[in-house]
């Protein structure tokens, strides 16, 4: 692991590598200069933030609505199905549902709203990354939901809510003003982790994204493909930026956890 990080830093500065000509900044300058690093960072962080926000809100909402929902056998089966669904399948399914020739378009066709696949507004491989966001949200939701359900039980929020009700709060006041802040505070590390895993997602943006801009993993993969050795260091410059962000989030995560313990 450490080797990967060090190697990517060295490679990006031209210290190592097949065609290395000694330490240089030119790969960084070219990667920053053509705007690739900036656009990739903005895209990845934007998508990841949005997905983390939506899946956390949905998970917490569901937990607040039905705190013990997870204990029913049907619910557990359903969550395991979603959890067990590989990300590639999420991407595939979203593609088959939302693409021009997908299920939604077919359903709209049958009620006469869409005439042909071209008339369907682009939702995959699109400029707003709608498809990526849907697929990523679906794939990160179950684990976040599971975590917050566990947290509800571990923190014994049932008892806290009942206590709040005893001293005069309504049912929802208890949930929103006692349970919600506790869930958010104790769940911070999980939210950071979820952000991080969305940031590095690969399969979903690979299948549902556009040629440019691309997310970190996809861009690193494409740049490091051995077609153009001269541009390979740029892949490692991007990887270094990515590692830097991961490092910051990981440190925040661990600090939060230590703080909570």
């Amino acid at each position: 692991m450490v080797w990967s990080v060090v190697y990517s830093i060295c490679y990006s500065f031209g210290i190592l590598g097949f065609l290395s000509e000694g330490p240089t900044l030119k790969h960084w300058i070219s990667a920053i200069g053509n705007g690739e690093i900036a656009s990739t960072t903005i895209l990845s962080v934007g998508i990841s933030l949005q997905v983390t926000l939506v899946s956390t809100a949905a998970a917490i909402g569901l937990v607040l609505l039905a705190p013990r929902g997870i204990e029913s056998r049907t619910m557990m089966t359903m969550v395991s199905v979603l959890l067990g669904m590989p990300v590639a399948i999420h991407a595939f399914v979203v593609y088959q549902i939302f693409s021009g020739g997908g299920l939604v378009s077919r359903a709209l066709h049958s009620v006469g709203l869409v005439g042909s696949p071209d008339e369907m507004p682009a939702m995959v491989n699109d400029g707003w990354s709608i498809g990526i966001c849907i697929a990523l949200t679906a794939s990160s939701f179950p684990i976040v939901y599971l975590y917050f359900s566990q947290l509800w039980a571990t923190l014994r929020l049932d008892k806290h809510c009942r206590l709040a009700e005893c001293i005069g709060a309504t049912r929802w006041q208890g949930k929103l003003r006692v349970a919600l802040p506790m869930l958010l505070r104790k769940g911070r590390p999980m939210i950071a982790m979820s952000f991080l895993s969305n940031l590095g997602s690969f399969e979903i943006p690979l299948l549902l994204g556009r040629q440019s801009p691309q997310m970190f993993s996809v861009l690193t993969y494409r740049r490091s493909g051995l077609y153009d050795l001269a541009r390979r260091p740029e892949a490692f410059a991007i990887a270094t930026v990515y590692f830097g962000m991961c490092l910051i989030v990981l440190i925040v995560y661990l600090r939060w956890r230590e703080h909570d313990e």
């Binding site: 692991m1 080797w3 990967s4 990080v5 190697y7 990517s8 490679y11 982790m193 991080l196 895993s197 940031l199 590095g200 997602s201 690969f202 970190f216 993993s217 996809v218 690193t220 993969y221 490091s224 892949a235 490692f236 990887a239 990515y242 590692f243 991961c246 989030v249 990981l250 995560y253 661990l254």
Partner: peptide, 15 residues
Amino acid sequence: YIPFGVSPMVIGTCL
């Protein structure tokens, strides 16, 4: 904790 968060794709490229 690196394996939890960091993309295997990027690490794989470096490895």
